[in-house]
Simulated scan of single mutants.
Amino acid sequence: MTARVVAVTGASGGIGRAAAVEFGRKGHRVALLARGAAGLEAAVDEVRRAGGMAIGIPTDVTDPAQLVVALTRIEEELGPVDVWVNDAFTSVFAPFDELTPEEYERVTTVAYLGYVYATMAVLPRMKARGRGTIVHVGSALAYRGIPLQTAYCGAKHAIQGFHEALRCELLHEGSPVRVTMVQMPAVNTPQFSWVRSALPHQAQPVPPIYQPEVAGRAVVHAAEHPRRREYWVGGSTVGTLLANAVAPGLLDRYLARTAFDSQQTAQPRDPDQPENLWAPADADRDFGMHGRFDDRSTGRSVQAWASRHHGVLAGALATAAVCAGVGLGRRRA
Rank of each mutant, 00 (worst) to 15 (best):
G299V: 11
T298F: 07
R257H: 03
Q267V: 14
F260P: 01
T298G: 04
N276Q: 11
A247K: 13
A247G: 03
F293V: 01
L277S: 08
A324W: 07
M289W: 09
T319C: 09
G329L: 08
T298A: 14
R257K: 04
L313T: 00
L255R: 10
W278A: 02
S262H: 07
A259K: 00
D252L: 05
S307P: 01
L317I: 11
R269Q: 07
D286V: 05
D272R: 13
A266N: 07
D286L: 08
L313N: 11
G315L: 15
Q273A: 15
D295C: 02
R330C: 08
P280V: 02
G291Y: 00
T265E: 08
A304D: 03
A306K: 08
V246N: 04
R296F: 04
V302N: 06
S307L: 14
D286R: 05
R292V: 00
Q267P: 05
A281I: 01
D295Y: 06
D284W: 07
G325P: 00
S297E: 05
A259D: 02
L313P: 09
H310V: 10
L317H: 06
R331A: 14
A279G: 03
P280A: 13
A306H: 13
G325Y: 07
R300S: 08
D284A: 14
A324G: 01
L317G: 13
L317V: 15
